[in-house]
Simulated assay, not measured.
Amino acid sequence: MDEGVAAEARVRDIFDDVVARGFRAEAVQGASDGEIDTWAAAQGVHMVPAALREILRIIGKPRRKTPTGWLASSAFGVDSIDARDKEFAGWCVEEADERGIEHGMRDPEGMLVVAGDGTSASFLVIDGSALVEPDPPIWLLTESGAIRRTSESTTAWFAKTGEELMNRTRQHARRDQAYYDSLFRR
């Protein structure tokens, strides 16, 4: 099986697993290939790795920023991340370089910004040198100049975010139950 097709299948399997565990698939909206290509081009990038493209096809147009969304409290998707975010992410790399912090990114100028924290203080990116890979690593950049590889692959990052989503859902359910229990004497 082609590596790109395999990466897309892993993304779909991760999403299907989270849906099977109770996530409502209709809570997210996917982006079209045209929207994804326009989004990447706005960042000066002409290639989107297969795994990320499939993630964007599934959840790339968030309906709203709420705890029920896949990536709560994050800027993510074709309508949320743009050239300005890439500029801010570039400043994170410049900060690291100015401080002499070794980071291991080979082509930060060609990076693709995947997500941000919504305050321009941190970003998740794919190194420009890895855009040709079907399932490249995800890097975390912060405004303090800290840069580290946060996931060995895009699918590993997506699986981690799916697990975090399910954990948030369980925490909300427990908190809601505790609140309702506090309203009634037993």
Rank of each mutant, 00 (worst) to 15 (best):
I55E: 13
I36N: 05
A89P: 04
E94H: 10
H46K: 11
K61E: 11
R84C: 09
G44I: 04
I58K: 14
V93F: 01
S80T: 03
G77N: 05
S74G: 02
E87Q: 11
W39D: 07
R63T: 06
E98C: 13
E102I: 06
I36C: 03
K86R: 08
E35P: 10
G90I: 01
P49M: 08
H103D: 01
D37L: 04
M105T: 03
S80L: 03
M47K: 15
K65S: 10
V78L: 12
I36S: 06
D37C: 04
K65G: 07
E35L: 04
G69K: 00
P49H: 02
A41P: 13
L52R: 04
A96T: 08
H46A: 04
V93T: 08
E35C: 02
R64H: 11
G100Y: 06
D97I: 11
F76P: 12
A83V: 11
A75Q: 09
C92N: 05
I58Y: 07
A51E: 02
A83G: 07
G90W: 00
P67L: 09
L52D: 07
E35N: 08
D37G: 02
V48G: 07
D82N: 12
K65H: 05
D79V: 01
T66N: 11
E102R: 12
V45S: 13
S73K: 15
H46C: 00
S80V: 00
G100E: 15
D85N: 14
A41R: 12
T66D: 06
P62R: 12
R64F: 03
K61C: 03
F76G: 12
K86H: 00
G77W: 08
V48A: 09
K86I: 00
F76D: 07
P49N: 08
I101S: 09
D79Y: 04
D85G: 12
E95C: 12
S80G: 03
A75H: 10
R57C: 08
I81E: 06
K65R: 10
A42G: 14
T68I: 15
A42T: 08
M105I: 01
A72T: 13
I59N: 12
